[in-house]
Amino acid sequence: MSAILQTQKLRVEYRTRELRQPVKIALTGLDLEVRAGEVFGFLGPNGAGKTTTMNVLLGFVPPTSGAASLFGIDVRQPIARQRIGYLPEMTYYYKFLSAEELLRFYAKIFGLARAEADRRIDQLLKLVELESARKRPIKSYSKGMQQRVGLAQALLNNPDLLILDEPTSGLDPLGRMKVREIIQRLKNEGKTVFFSSHELGEVETICDRVAIVHQGDLKAVGTVAEISAGHPNLEQAFLKIVGFQSAHAS
């Protein structure tokens, strides 16, 4: 199978404003490969470098060294993003637009034809259950509704690859289940999903493969079974790999 998402020796340093402060190394040389059709969980504790990796893949942060590509196209080219959907970790959308207007705007950015856009917008608003609020400005939406707008915009172009940054964080249990359902459905449609999380329970059930990063470094990659081999479950394996000493461990 071919790699749809790839990073090679990816290194990212953040320069801090104060001159005497050392640069902050967010990624030390990450090699990652996500193959077509898999659901790939990108795990790591807070500050591990998950968001940074995604920011490079989307072209928000230029790599200090190394390379990253989507569908074999260098991420510096906008066209690399034609077939992806992205859900940011946390975002507000244009508050003065309605959900429908927001999606119509993004559809134009994707270059979708009018009829196709209309059809997809109707379909997505139904999927995320925002049909009744579609004409209201986003500023009148609750937090959960705003997150669902985010999900709808990520699916607008019927993407082949989804990049989701902690898609379930901050959602209630029902919301989480819906997101998991959607990921599962996308997988059945043959899409590739790359998502970050620190919710190990959900990762275990839906991921084909996972990678564990810690302090900007890739610590492990493989199927859930491979990584949890020799441990009671994925959570224990994860804790061991990131060097957490459980009080109960003897």
Binding site: P78, G150, N157
Partner: peptide
């Protein structure tokens, strides 16, 4: 500030 730039630039727009 509102981070709307991220979902925007994640789309095929330069």
């Amino acid at each position: 500030e509102a981070r709307t730039i991220f979902p925007l630039l994640a789309k095929p727009v330069s």
